[in-house]
Amino acid sequence: MTSTPLGLTVEEASLAYQGTPLFENLSLTLSPSSWCCLLGRSGCGKSSLLRLIAGLDTSKGAKVRLSDHAGNALPAQAFAWMAQQDALFPWLSVIENLLLGDRLQGQSKSSARRAEAIALLETLNLADKAEARPYVLSGGQRQRVALARTLMRPSPIVLMDEPFSAVDAITRYDLHQLATSLLSDRTVLMVTHDPGEALHLSDRILVLSPSGRLAPFDCGGPPKALSLSQRADAEQELITLLGHQ
């Protein structure tokens, strides 16, 4: 369970790589319980921006100011992270991977938290894998476990770095359905290379250019609310836009 939904305001986000700026003084604002996708050409700094927001980049010259929709500072606990690779610990069982965050934070083992994890695995059709090691799972199952681990954190803001790119199209569709349902009360910022995925999942799309500029993509309304034909037109427009960057 999460607490009251929070929005996210990012200000003065700046980052350089080997002395060359990737981006400077970027800002963005996300409404509570919204889903925003971040697109851009490879190497433009999308994942770097996400890592900066998550507090994972502490290199010299990296800076950012973060607050919620009411202007309050956000602690590290406000963010949950889901990467492209599932990063499951191979020597731990599925249930142990889900409860690892509790252990790392010094929380004692709780039957209530274990029951919560089992219930989540049931929702994801993985209850029979609770005691299995990750190596026996398929790629799609491992990503569902990674999603479950993200959900086990009560963080109201979820940062996702191409979390569905390593699975096949059918599995990706299933993960989309699960993620939009299970994350409906959280604020999501997700990096993707796939315009179709962004249009299917998001309320809003932002495009980061190789020159370090961040701009909204206007497709005439919330992307995921478009009709199939409107979405097809918007996808082609996005592909053209990215191709000209």
Rank of each mutant, 00 (worst) to 15 (best):
L74W: 03
Y135W: 08
P156K: 06
P195C: 12
E162Y: 10
L92E: 00
R144M: 08
F164Y: 05
Y173M: 05
Q85S: 14
R113M: 10
R153S: 15
D102V: 02
V94E: 06
I118M: 15
W81V: 13
I118R: 13
S59K: 04
D57W: 01
H176R: 11
E96W: 00
S184D: 06
A132N: 01
E162L: 08
R149F: 11
N97F: 11
A179N: 05
T180F: 02
T180A: 05
D68G: 12
I170T: 10
L66H: 07
T150H: 00
I157S: 00
A130S: 15
V191F: 04
E116I: 00
S184H: 13
Q77N: 08
G71Q: 06
A146D: 07
P163A: 10
I170Q: 15
L151V: 09
Q107M: 10
R142Q: 15
L159F: 05
A112D: 15
A62E: 12
V191E: 06
V64F: 07
A73H: 13
V158E: 03
P75D: 13
A80C: 14
S184T: 13
F79Y: 12
S93D: 01
R149L: 12
Q84F: 09
T150C: 15
E162K: 11
Q84R: 05
I157C: 03
M152N: 06
V191M: 04
